[in-house]
């Protein structure tokens, strides 16, 4: 198990490096410099800026400087928010996004797995079909459609919940964003759980367990749940990425001052260092979480560890 974990960790490093280098090169391949639209500056000032941001160095040198900074958690200065470093900006905005994302993820797993399991056990019934219709709809409707429609009904028309972040301070302002973020994941996880549970329930070892008179509850809990969760666990990586992506939209629509909103602002403002920094940060986060998922997978499936 230790060997397996170590191998996984080592395998993640090249991926991470690739992401960083790719993102860095993309930004630096940009036609024209980041300050091009500020032509009003005199030439010597521009040169000073370039020097301050090391834009006068060669590309490999800049890359090495960037990687060196990264190791110490330094993502460089922001081009737009001149008084802040990228790390400071991320540090300020991320906790809120993390809170939202973690809540959405927890909600998605609990609701999705329960709904999927119930549907699988009641396969073919009215309940099953209802769950599946809901989840198909949930998968098909994008976050940026769900969010405004929910706001329109629950905040504007019914006025049950606050529409924007700033219009309230209580926990109620979390409700709509979290639900919006979780909805497509609930739908996907429910579908996945149902399909995988039906598959597992049809396997021979489940038949054996039933033949031992263990009762439906024990059969599902002891024998079926673990293997049925493996595809769901594999989906956690993409789910995390999807929630990060969704948070960009949700924060934009609800006006939540999280990292997603920062990212969009930075993208629209062409704040290269900030965009680059956030992409690198997100990538590292996703690679790290995928790593955790991989290790968990090994912990559940004994056969994986020995390969």
């Amino acid at each position: 198990m230790l060997r397996y974990t170590l191998l996984r960790v080592l395998g993640a490093i090249p991926t991470l490096l690739l992401v960083i280098v790719l993102a860095f090169l993309m930004v630096h391949a940009a036609p024209g410099g980041p300050f091009d639209d500020e032509r009003v500056l005199p030439a010597d000032v521009e040169a000073n800026i370039a020097r301050a941001y090391h834009l006068d160095e060669s590309l490999p040198k800049q890359l090495l400087r960037y990687l060196g900074g990264l190791v110490q958690g330094d993502l460089g200065p922001s081009y737009r928010y001149r008084d802040y470093t990228v790390s400071e900006l991320i540090g300020a905005a991320f906790p809120l996004s993390l809170k939202l994302g973690a809540m959405a993820m927890a909600l998605a797993i609990v609701v999705g797995v329960s709904a999927g399991t119930v549907a699988a056990l009641q396969q073919g019934t009215y309940l099953d079909r209802t769950v599946m219709a809901f989840s198909m709809t949930g998968i098909s409707i994008p976050v940026f459609v769900v969010a405004p429609v929910l706001v329109l009904f629950f905040a504007v028309k019914l006025q049950w919940l606050p529409a924007g972040w700033s219009s309230s301070t209580g926990a109620s302002r979390m409700v709509l964003p979290v639900i919006t973020l979780a909805l497509p994941q609930i739908a996907y996880i429910a579908r996945l759980t149902r399909a995988s549970m039906i598959d597992v329930l049809g396997r021979d070892f489940v038949r054996t367990a039933r033949a031992q008179g263990l009762g439906t509850l024990t059969v599902v809990r002891l024998h079926a749940l673990k293997p049925a969760m493996l595809p769901v666990l594999s989906y956690m990586g993409p789910a995390i990425a999807a929630i990060l992506t969704g948070s960009v939209v949700v924060e934009e629509i609800f006006g939540i001052p999280g990292l997603g909103q920062f990212f969009i602002r930075a993208a629209l403002n062409r704040d290269y260092t900030l965009v680059l920094g956030i992409v690198v940060f997100y990538a590292a986060l996703i690679v790290l979480l995928n790593l955790i998922v991989d290790v968990l997978y090994g912990a559940i499936d004994p056969r994986v560890r020995y390969r």
Binding site: D204, F205, R207, T208, A209, Q212, G213, L222, H223, P227
Partner: peptide, 16 residues
């Protein structure tokens, strides 16, 4: 196929 690959055999027998 008939034994659960995710459970130690002792556990599978105990449960009965």
């Amino acid at each position: 196929q008939a034994l659960n690959p995710y459970l130690r055999i002792g556990r599978q027998l105990r449960e009965i």
